[in-house]
């Protein structure tokens, strides 16, 4: 973990309520896709934990969904705004565990960390299959970005306006050889993915209301088969085998 300042360089609106924010700053504390940053906002006491979408040595990309006051504020700052950020928080995805038949599955804003993950898998010579779920066509984002990595994309929308009508789980079912999943999304989606019998293993990224974001306050602890774990420090990625719903 590192505490440092990041400067907002560029903001781009992707959908009605999802924005791409690109910052410049020192990302040396970021070690794995799936980690998150904790961003301090003016007039807010608690920082906002936000999943890292992608990073280079000196730039950081976050996809932010307007969910409340803080995130509404965050996506509207002008370029040049400086933020106090705790970076490199959480465990991140473990690429070594993902075998040949791994699939990346994301729902809504949960897609964000899968991009950085897919990019690193592609760089290792194997662009993964990516299943993305949205409510409707106008909610979709980052499809071109994933395609540009060479990923095979499977899209599901709840109303059938793009791709398969249904859910991300329907996409995974259509590929019976997939036996491992790296996933992030809303809790009901994670639970549905977890219950797919074809999966031998997987890594699931969880969200929580956090106090500190670095393991000190126990504000985000959840029960697992291996005892209580802190989503911020022991997670946000939990192994399929340890999850209790």
């Amino acid at each position: 973990m590192k505490k440092s300042f990041f400067t907002l360089e560029h903001t781009r609106q992707l959908t009605e309520d999802i924005w791409e924010l690109i910052f410049s700053g020192d990302t040396s504390a970021v070690t794995a896709p799936g980690q998150f940053v904790n961003v301090e906002l003016p007039e807010k006491f608690l920082r906002r934990p936000i999943s890292i979408c992608d990073w280079t040595a000196d730039s950081l990309t976050l996809l932010v969904k307007e969910a409340g006051e803080g995130t509404r504020q965050l996506v509207r700052f002008p370029s040049g705004t400086r933020f106090d950020v705790l970076s490199g928080l959480g465990n991140g995805f473990d690429l070594e565990q993902a075998g040949e038949h791994a699939i990346l599955a994301g729902g809504g804003i949960g897609i964000a960390p899968l991009y950085g993950l897919a990019r690193r898998m592609a760089e290792r010579g194997h662009a993964p299959v990516v299943a993305l779920g949205f409510r409707t066509k106008t909610d979709t984002f980052y499809l071109e970005e994933f395609s540009a990595l060479g990923c095979r994309l499977l899209i599901a929308t709840e109303d059938g306006s793009l791709g398969t009508k249904g859910f991300v789980t329907d996409c995974i079912r259509s590929l019976p050889e997939c036996d491992y999943v790296l996933t992030c999304g809303p809790l009901p989606m994670l639970q549905a993915v977890h219950s797919l019998p074809q999966l031998k293993g997987g890594q699931f990224s969880f969200e929580a209301r956090m106090g500190c974001g670095f393991g000190a306050c126990m504000g985000c602890s959840v029960p697992t088969k291996g005892g209580y774990k802190r989503v911020c420090k022991d997670g946000p990625i939990l192994d399929k085998e340890e999850i209790i719903w």
């Binding site: 006491f45 126990m218 504000g219």
Partner: peptide
Amino acid sequence: LGNPQPRIAEMTGGMLNAVGLQ
């Protein structure tokens, strides 16, 4: 084990917690 989630809330000038002595 402490209290169920969520345990944290925000307010102007501070926060609330109900960790429950985990």
